[in-house]
Amino acid sequence: LFLIDAQADISKDDAAVAELLRSAPERVILVANKVDNESIAEDLAGFWRLGLGEPHPISAVHGVGVADVLDLVVNRFPDVEEEDRKDDSPRTLAIIGRPNVGKSTLLNNLLGEDRVVVSPIGGTTRDPIDAPVEIDGISYTLIDTAGIRRAPKVGEDAEFYSILRAKEVLRDADVALLLIDALEGVTHQDQRIAEEAAESGAGLVVILNKWDAIDTEEREWTEDGVADRFGFVDWAPVLRISALTGSRLKRLGPAVERVLVNRASRIPTGELNRLITAWTQAHPAPVRKGRRPRILYAVQAGTEPPTIILFVSGGELGEDYLRFIENRLRERFDFEGSPIRLIARRKNRRPR
């Protein structure tokens, strides 16, 4: 980024730097700062003489035009994620959930073989399970978290080990398949594991297993429990299957692919900032500790999961307002199955 003063003439130093940069003009973005009004913006033609292409107007003080410049910068970055996937390495699916909810049964069904011994006693699978599998013609690596269990000592909580197993595999997972026993409904332990999945950044698909074993009234009760206890991950698709018979299992492949696509989504910086400006003007952030925070601009810094940085002046943005921004983003864009990370950064004033 070559920054020039839009309110001053081209200096000898400007010309000297421009001469050095002209050897690779395609790698240079000419940025004219201090464009604080329309009259200055209309008087930038003279900067074309630098031979570095169009001067892009901004006002660093007011944050005007910064989002458009950030868009130009991001668009010129090499697509590292696509390069990383050129080896066609399969995406990783982690089967997570409480003991004895049908994780090993699901794994066996997807593999088409009895790779794991299935028992009504929870935690019988002890060896780590890491297997290649094809779903709808697409290759994945499937991990069954039942294989990471270790025998608890007397007095130790089994819930602790369920969550520990989930943490271990979620580190490398692209999508987590959270199995819920539809007969028992959503438990506190299921909530804890879902929290770990959301915090890990992996995509999430909630699977209500043993669906064919419950009647209409029980199904309504189970679905009410999902809506009530999984409100914090209401963005995750919910499938209703039978891991034992394979009923409705054909819906898993399309759901996983949709989540992978959404998790890699990117919002153009200009559009992102226009939307956030409109939302914050309609519903300003609440005053905290006597100061009202103001979002100056935003940029999506990464994908998998989508990560958006909000540059803020004034007070601090509370979790409730970040949730408000996330909800507006989900209403506007398809992020089904993917968490969104919103990071608020305070913009400190430079010393004069």
Score class of each variant (00 low, 15 high):
292 R>A: 11
292 R>F: 01
292 R>C: 06
293 P>M: 09
295 I>K: 05
295 I>D: 00
296 L>C: 10
298 A>E: 01
298 A>P: 00
298 A>W: 00
299 V>E: 05
299 V>M: 07
300 Q>D: 09
300 Q>T: 04
302 G>W: 05
302 G>N: 15
303 T>Q: 11
303 T>H: 04
303 T>K: 14
304 E>M: 03
304 E>A: 12
305 P>D: 13
305 P>I: 11
305 P>V: 06
307 T>L: 03
307 T>Q: 10
308 I>P: 05
309 I>G: 00
309 I>L: 12
310 L>V: 10
310 L>M: 08
311 F>P: 09
311 F>C: 02
311 F>W: 10
312 V>H: 05
313 S>C: 09
313 S>M: 13
313 S>H: 10
314 G>S: 07
314 G>V: 12
314 G>N: 05
314 G>Y: 00
315 G>I: 07
315 G>W: 00
315 G>A: 08
315 G>T: 08
315 G>P: 11
316 E>W: 02
316 E>H: 10
317 L>H: 00
317 L>V: 07
317 L>S: 01
318 G>P: 06
318 G>C: 02
319 E>V: 12
320 D>T: 14
320 D>E: 14
320 D>Y: 09
321 Y>M: 07
321 Y>F: 12
322 L>N: 10
322 L>V: 09
323 R>W: 01
324 F>T: 03
324 F>G: 06
326 E>L: 02
327 N>R: 15
327 N>Q: 14
329 L>C: 11
329 L>S: 11
331 E>F: 06
331 E>I: 03
331 E>T: 12
331 E>Q: 11
332 R>Y: 07
333 F>H: 14
333 F>S: 07
334 D>R: 14
334 D>P: 08
